[in-house]
Design a protein around this nucleic acid. Structure first.
Lengths: 194, 194
DNA sequence: AGACAAAACGAACGACTGTTTGCTTTATAG
DNA sequence: CTATAAAGCAAACAGTCGTTCGTTTTGTCT
């Protein structure tokens, strides 16, 4: 009863499919990207994609999961390098923004494509997002703040501003994702040092 | 040579078309909303919409313009009621958020539908957005701040967080758009009073 | 070399897309 | 009442959509 090991074929094209799907979903959004667009980008016929994914929405979920995984990983690693709560939050903000604006595609899909755009997979997408949000909630909870400070607002203010940056950020020598995140954090931190 | 006055027909349905288009664009996004969806919502045949608008993108531009007009109007009125720069900015933030989260549809389309979603009209949409952004830039410029403060970051931080609120805000007794905007502004203002 | 599964092809399906066109209804003005 | 223009209907156009399926190619293991 020798079990047949499913050894993946040598040169699997699945990563390439995910890459191009992520790029297109980010550029044009979910609804405006067709399976034919993705197939053409990886030089395949449209039907062939269905060997790898049962439906378009499954392709998005796969990209989404990878996006959340990537950004979570980067933020966790950055946070672990510091002890002081404000420094940990700053490291998280910098890592978050760099993941969005430099790693690109995968992470941006997560904040560009709304769960409501994909009704059948909405629940899964929301769950993925929430898991990530909890990470920031912990960091904010650890901050030494005056008791009257609204920690929830602080988190929403910071994370909202970071996510919105996708709409105005342009690569330039003057402003990097890192400098922007630090600038945001300085504006917030100084308020609490009174 | 009596000029023929084009008096609008008594019960024009154009406002109704715009209302439903705004609602659908906000709910499902631009690409996922079909002309047939809009036509069905106003109880018309799809082709009839083309008497009012030459193309789908023109319908979006019309909604967009109305959205920018509405929110600009509300913010201007709110700002005019105050003299002190921080109070003026707070009034603007409250009005902005209330326009987004309470007026609904029209204003939300402006921040939900990206110019890049409608390539042919992208330039016009960007122009409309920028005009509104300038309003906030003026308010931030008027703030009495220490010289080292990054005013651009302050504006981007605030406006980004306000716009992002569409993604997490839920109507509830505890948090109103007004209280959220004020909470955000307090976090920022306190930093500058050192 | 032969066996076998993974991977992709080729072609089509029914449904839906934005839009056009000629005709009819409807409301107003003279 | 009648002329006239606004507004909407009815039907179709060419194209694109996500998806299916039988067949063929490709790569790997024995």
């Amino acid at each position: 009863m020798a079990q047949t090991l499913r050894i993946p074929r040598s040169d699997n094209r699945l990563p390439q499919i995910l890459d191009e799907a992520a790029r297109l979903f980010r550029e044009k959004g979910y609804a405006a990207t067709s399976m034919r667009d993705i197939a053409a980008a990886v030089d395949m016929l449209p039907g062939s994609l269905y060997y790898h994914f049962a439906a378009k929405e499954d392709l998005l979920v796969a990209v989404y999961e990878e996006g959340v995984r990537l950004i979570t990983e980067k933020v966790r690693a950055a946070v672990a390098r510091h002890e002081e709560p404000w420094l940990r939050l700053e490291a998280a903000a910098v890592a978050h923004l760099e993941a969005l604006l430099k790693t690109g595609d995968y992470a941006l899909v997560v904040i560009r494509v709304l769960p409501q755009d994909v009704p059948k997979a909405a629940a899964r997408l929301v769950k993925l997002r929430d898991g990530y949000d909890a990470l920031f909630a912990e960091l904010v909870a650890a901050l030494p703040l005056p008791p009257e400070t609204d920690r929830q607002s602080l988190r929403l203010l910071l994370l909202g501003a970071l996510n919105w940056s996708q709409h105005w950020f342009r690569e330039s020598g003057r402003h990097s994702p890192r400098s922007i995140a630090r600038s945001f954090l300085r504006l917030l931190r100084d308020a609490q040092k009174i």
